[in-house]
Amino acid sequence: MTANDPNTRQNPHDLPPTGESAAKGPAAAGKKIAWVREPELGMAGRSYLMLFLQGLRTTLRHLLSRKTTVQSPEQRHVVPDPLIYRGVHRLNRDAQGRVKCVACFLCATACPAHCIDIVPAESPWPDRQKYPQSFTIDELRCIFCGMCEEACPVQAIELTSLYDLSGKSREEMVFDKAKLLSVFDQTKDAEPMTKGTGTFFGLPVSNEGTPGPAEK
């Protein structure tokens, strides 16, 4: 560390560079510094004239361009691909109209906002062990990241393309099982269930039959 080290100097204006430090540069101090070169301005840049005109051209072009505003209550925003949009959740039903969820808690575990609350109970149906006695999602806590949808082994929870979610109280925004199932009823025609297949604890699951581990 010398007095001329640019990293330690108090007031660099007062100290002209010596030949040594100018030759070796900042790397002479033994520091790994990645220098980024500022682009050198040509005459066009230095005279500000071209920049002046470029700025004006950009704003003038946008001034006259087509506007992208959607006039919301009258016009509806068109979701480009509803199947990948991350809006309000729904709980899917199987072919017999039962909730598909097997209360495995994978979605609640994956949820970074901790907005899913599941109370499991012994399943009344023979094809699975558990089912959700209650299944609530706090839509105000939810950050709509879609990780519950990805975690679900049985494609029971999905995000729809409904985006204008509103309510008059916090309680109203905590969606229970009935509400989430009604969202499914509302959106099942426009947005069919994902025909995904996967495995759950090594067992094949599909959308067709009700999946899940076989009964013991």
């Binding site: 640019p6 660099p12 002209p16 560079p17 100018a22 540069g25 790397a27 790994k32 220098w35 070169r37």
Partner: peptide, 16 residues
């Protein structure tokens, strides 16, 4: 003397 053109050695990539 600390402006990039003067301060950066020509072989700065090799040094860093």
């Amino acid at each position: 003397h600390l402006r990039p053109a003067e301060a950066i050695p020509a072989d700065w990539e090799a040094q860093s």
